[in-house]
């Protein structure tokens, strides 16, 4: 692998880092924000399960993303990742919880526009529709869990301290599940564009286990996410946990589990093919936004409580951010591609 390849891969790693700092913070944000799980514990569990999710179940969403536009040269992939990473950084500066998902989709469309490649409209519509579905499903799941949990807690007459102990354990398990689902669902954002041009060769371990080039890429992406979690997510976790809505630890658990289920649903090839086998409409394997899932779940709980506690103006601002982000990412991608092609003479398309 030459130096240039490594440099281009850093684009993906940068995006992985920003995913770790922003999106991964959504998984444990409410748990750490409500001081139910220590940051160090959250960071270790989150990193470990993000990497596992990425390697074991990361393929499904990657396929969908590659159908949107197949970036076929490393400089192009680099431009898309840097554009997505920068856009996320800009939006984060404005205090808007955004996701790398929307940014990378915007950046891929930007690449398509710049190189004159066609954008698969059907896939684009599928992705866009999941962005609307994702918060709604998360909200509905949260409402269901909130109602059931409230009933259970009221009838169980458990001591407040016992509830605390159970909630801590549940938060950690749900967080691990959430991190796994995030890795599975969102690794496509970080490394998806590099898959068709993976600069690695398969590693065969004593004829027992093959570590494919894709899995190696996903491991690398997972590690970048882990670095993001450890270096930058603490502040974001406290923001997600405290600023969005004052939440009880049990509500925090409901947010985490709802978010995790949604991400898992949109990443699980098993569930998708099971639904297909029953002749039911299958769930598209699309990278969805963890921020959207978390905010959907929080609003779901807020609505159940009568809707008075929901800061609708903030919710509106956040939604606007979700529309603006892909546009910004596409625009930034076009600028970077222009610079790469015309100043550095890099081949952005084969």
């Amino acid at each position: 692998m030459d130096l240039l390849t490594i440099i281009f891969l850093t684009g993906g790693l940068f995006l992985g880092w920003s995913l770790g700092a922003n999106d991964a913070a959504n998984v444990f944000g409410t748990a750490v924000g409500t001081r139910m799980v220590r940051f160090k514990t959250a960071a270790i569990v989150c990193s470990l399960f993000v990497i596992l999710g990425a390697i074991i179940s990361g393929s499904g969403t990657t396929e969908t993303l590659s159908k949107l536009g197949s970036i076929n040269a490393l400089p192009g992939a680099f431009a898309a990742c840097v554009a997505a990473g920068l856009s996320v950084y800009i939006m984060t500066k404005f205090g808007l919880p955004v996701s790398t998902t929307q940014a990378i989709v915007g950046a891929i469309v930007g690449w398509n526009l710049y190189t004159g490649s066609s954008t698969n409209i059907k896939v684009l519509i599928t992705i866009l529709s999941t962005w609307i579905l994702c918060p709604i499903i998360a909200g509905l799941i949260a409402m269901f869990f909130y109602t059931v949990t409230k009933k259970l807690l009221n009838n169980s007459k458990l001591h407040i301290l016992r509830v605390d102990a159970y909630t801590r354990t549940a938060l950690l398990l749900a967080g691990a599940f959430g991190a796994y689902s995030l890795g599975a669902n969102n690794i496509a954002n970080v490394m998806g564009v590099f898959v068709p041009i993976a600069p690695f060769s398969d590693i065969n371990l004593i004829n027992l286990f093959t570590f494919s080039s894709k899995e190696q890429l996903f491991l690398l992406g997972g590690l970048a996410i882990a670095v993001g979690v450890f270096t930058y997510s603490k502040k974001v976790m406290y923001t997600v946990g405290n600023d969005l809505l004052k939440m009880s630890p049990v509500a925090a658990f409901i947010v985490v589990i709802s978010h995790s289920i949604v991400l898992f649903l949109f990443a699980s090839q098993g569930i998708s093919s099971f639904l297909q086998s029953l002749n039911l409409p299958s769930i598209p394997l699309v990278p969805v936004s963890s921020s959207q899932a978390v905010i959907g779940a929080v609003i779901g709980i807020g609505l159940l409580k009568g809707g008075k506690e929901v800061q609708w103006s903030i919710a509106g601002r956040i939604s606007l951010g979700w529309v603006v982000l892909p546009v910004i990412a596409a625009f930034v991608a076009i600028i970077i591609l222009f610079i790469l092609e015309n100043i550095f003479g890099a081949g952005i398309k084969i």
């Binding site: 799980v37 220590r38 160090k40 514990t41 270790i44 569990v45 001591h159 301290l161 016992r162 605390d164 102990a165 801590r168 354990t169 950690l172």
Partner: peptide, 21 residues
């Protein structure tokens, strides 16, 4: 594990419940 002290967490809760009672 992971700073959770899962085993002692429940026994500690029980002990505190007893003390509060």
């Amino acid at each position: 594990m992971f700073g959770l002290k899962s085993k002692s967490l429940f026994s500690q809760s029980k002990e505190l419940e007893r003390q509060i009672d």
